[in-house]
Simulated assay, not measured.
Amino acid sequence: MRRRTVVTAGALAIACALSVPTTAFAKGPGGSQFDVEGSNQQDGGKTLESRIVYSGSTGGSHGTRSSGFTPVGDWSPPACWYEPKWTPDEFAEEFQKEWDIPHSSGVGEAHDLAEEHYKNGQPYKDFNKSETGKGMWWDAVRDRSREESGDPAAFACDTATFWVENGETPAVKNAVTPEILAQLAYSRIKVPDTKVTLAPKDTTKVNLPTWAWLDRATFKDVSVTASLDVAGLNISATTTAKPVSLELEPGTSDAETYPASGECRLNDDHSIGEPYAKGDAGRTPPCGIKYLRSSGDGTYKLRATITWNVTWTGTGGAGGDLPDGTFGTTQDITVQEIQSVNR
């Protein structure tokens, strides 16, 4: 048995130069052999092409993503990664199925090159069937949404399908580890679409402080676990997002926020702000807004953005921090002039 994680530069150059009329084939032996994706979920959160299973606050069994949970800064979860995909028999079957194409327009040359690489002993012999039970074939997986949006990062995993013995970790960037699983779990976190409670509700008056708060009961930590359990590899990671603050943007410059920064921090009981109670009319709200001008015949778009602190723990005691995430929603606020009666 011979183990290789990266093909030769010559094979890569030849394969990349070929024009192949099939969407299933990507790059020949110089790159991922198959057009695989990482977000087509079914069967309890397991992808069709990926063996990673997601559970927890994923927005349902299909692992759909939050529409707006956005990392702070330039960081983003992996758009592609490598994971164990096939046993020798499975890879042989997949290989033959995907390479069942005519020997024309240079495709035959690519086919022959790939057969030499995986079947004829240069460097692999008969898809490593003699090593059955001792390892698996690893291949690239792409995040479908990132791929469809044309994100170049989704195409960065261009190392050829490679063999890894059980218990070994390949020296390839973005090969699945607990930390990579934690980052993938991050991209599938679904946070609640929490609407801020206001007093007065929806309609307020000019120069009247409006109280804003989020109850502890509807403002909880959320987490997603990503796990991979195949022969020779059993790892998992749980990524947890904890709400830490609420930022209020009034939707107009003719307003003041409480506190002045507009950022309301988490209370000791994990709530934010304070519910309005009878008798509080003369108090300044710990979290709220005061509009200085009427919204006229329209409304102001109050935007409430929650910041979530994100951490992870994984197999073997691994763990750490990931970038904070934010999620914002808007709600319409009508601001009226206070009517006075002249005698």
Rank of each mutant, 00 (worst) to 15 (best):
G325T: 14
C16A: 06
P275F: 05
W312F: 13
R2M: 10
G314M: 10
S145M: 07
D89A: 14
T8H: 11
G135D: 08
T132S: 08
A175K: 04
D268E: 14
S66L: 13
A318D: 15
G121R: 12
T315D: 15
I306M: 11
P71R: 02
G282M: 06
E249Q: 12
T315R: 07
L18C: 12
D158Y: 06
T87Q: 01
D193L: 08
V141E: 04
K173T: 15
C287F: 10
Y54I: 00
T132V: 06
F91V: 05
Q122N: 13
Y82L: 04
K97L: 13
V191I: 13
G298E: 00
G44L: 11
T330R: 06
E256M: 02
P285F: 00
P170E: 00
V196H: 00
D74W: 08
T203D: 02
D151T: 09
L184M: 11
D151E: 09
S261N: 12
G298N: 11
T315A: 13
F327P: 03
T8F: 01
G282H: 06
P178V: 10
G288C: 01
Y291P: 05
G288Y: 00
K129S: 01
V191K: 00
S340Y: 10
S295K: 03
S187M: 02
A15V: 05
V335E: 02
A24E: 02
G31V: 09
D74I: 05
S39R: 09
V206A: 08
T197N: 14
G262P: 09
R144A: 02
K278M: 14
H111E: 05
S50A: 04
A182G: 08
Q96D: 15
P209F: 00
D126V: 00
L198Q: 04
W86P: 00
V36A: 02
R144M: 03
R3F: 12
P21A: 08
K195G: 11
Q33F: 14
Y82M: 09
G59V: 10
G133T: 13
H111L: 12
T203F: 05
E83M: 03
V176S: 01
R283P: 05
A237R: 08
